[in-house]
Simulated scan of single mutants.
Amino acid sequence: MLVHPNLGFFHAAADTVGMPLPDAWGIGDSPYADNSGAIALGLRTVRVSKGQP
């Protein structure tokens, strides 16, 4: 079971699509659950707001 922020998730996703992790972006709607793991790995991030500030 993967629990956010699980850094292994980012490695697995990058491996699955054949992308070097440094070229990947983290995209999510939660700064903690989605973006904190990406930031911990040094990835660029995009927050998708679903009508929330």
Rank of each mutant, 00 (worst) to 15 (best):
residue 1 M to W: 12
residue 1 M to V: 09
residue 2 L to D: 10
residue 2 L to Q: 09
residue 2 L to E: 10
residue 2 L to G: 04
residue 3 V to H: 09
residue 4 H to N: 13
residue 4 H to M: 12
residue 4 H to S: 15
residue 5 P to G: 00
residue 5 P to D: 01
residue 5 P to C: 02
residue 6 N to R: 13
residue 6 N to K: 08
residue 7 L to A: 09
residue 7 L to N: 07
residue 8 G to I: 04
residue 8 G to D: 12
residue 8 G to P: 01
residue 8 G to F: 01
residue 9 F to Q: 02
residue 9 F to T: 05
residue 9 F to C: 05
residue 9 F to A: 11
residue 10 F to Q: 06
residue 10 F to K: 06
residue 11 H to F: 07
residue 11 H to T: 14
residue 12 A to H: 11
residue 12 A to S: 10
residue 12 A to I: 08
residue 13 A to Q: 06
residue 13 A to I: 03
residue 13 A to H: 08
residue 13 A to M: 08
residue 14 A to N: 07
residue 14 A to Q: 03
residue 14 A to S: 12
residue 14 A to P: 04
residue 14 A to D: 06
residue 14 A to K: 03
residue 15 D to I: 06
residue 15 D to E: 15
residue 16 T to R: 14
residue 16 T to G: 08
residue 16 T to C: 11
residue 17 V to D: 07
residue 17 V to A: 10
residue 18 G to P: 04
residue 18 G to D: 08
residue 19 M to Y: 13
residue 19 M to F: 12
residue 20 P to L: 09
residue 20 P to Q: 12
residue 20 P to S: 12
residue 21 L to T: 08
residue 21 L to W: 02
residue 21 L to F: 04
residue 22 P to E: 08
residue 22 P to C: 03
residue 22 P to Q: 07
residue 23 D to R: 15
residue 24 A to E: 03
residue 24 A to N: 08
residue 24 A to I: 01
residue 24 A to M: 07
residue 25 W to H: 12
residue 25 W to C: 04
residue 25 W to D: 02
residue 25 W to V: 06
residue 26 G to I: 01
residue 26 G to R: 01
residue 26 G to V: 02
residue 27 I to P: 00
residue 27 I to F: 13
residue 27 I to L: 13
residue 28 G to W: 07
residue 28 G to M: 05
residue 28 G to A: 11
residue 28 G to Q: 06
residue 30 S to V: 07
residue 30 S to P: 00
residue 30 S to F: 09
residue 30 S to Y: 12
residue 30 S to M: 12
residue 30 S to A: 14
residue 31 P to K: 13
residue 31 P to W: 15
residue 32 Y to L: 15
residue 32 Y to K: 15
residue 32 Y to P: 00
residue 32 Y to Q: 15
residue 33 A to L: 12
residue 33 A to S: 14
residue 33 A to R: 15
residue 33 A to I: 10
residue 34 D to F: 07
residue 34 D to V: 05
residue 35 N to C: 13
residue 35 N to R: 15
residue 36 S to P: 04
residue 36 S to D: 09
residue 36 S to M: 11
residue 36 S to N: 07
residue 37 G to Q: 01
residue 37 G to Y: 00
residue 37 G to S: 05
residue 39 I to Q: 13
residue 39 I to E: 11
residue 41 L to H: 06
residue 41 L to E: 04
residue 42 G to M: 05
residue 42 G to R: 07
residue 43 L to G: 05
residue 43 L to Y: 05
residue 43 L to Q: 06
residue 43 L to K: 03
residue 45 T to D: 01
residue 45 T to E: 03
residue 45 T to Y: 04
residue 47 R to S: 01
residue 47 R to L: 10
residue 47 R to I: 09
residue 47 R to P: 00
residue 48 V to C: 03
residue 48 V to I: 14
residue 48 V to P: 00
residue 49 S to G: 00
residue 49 S to R: 15
residue 49 S to A: 10
residue 50 K to W: 11
residue 50 K to M: 11
residue 50 K to D: 01
residue 51 G to D: 03
residue 52 Q to F: 12
residue 52 Q to T: 10
residue 52 Q to V: 12
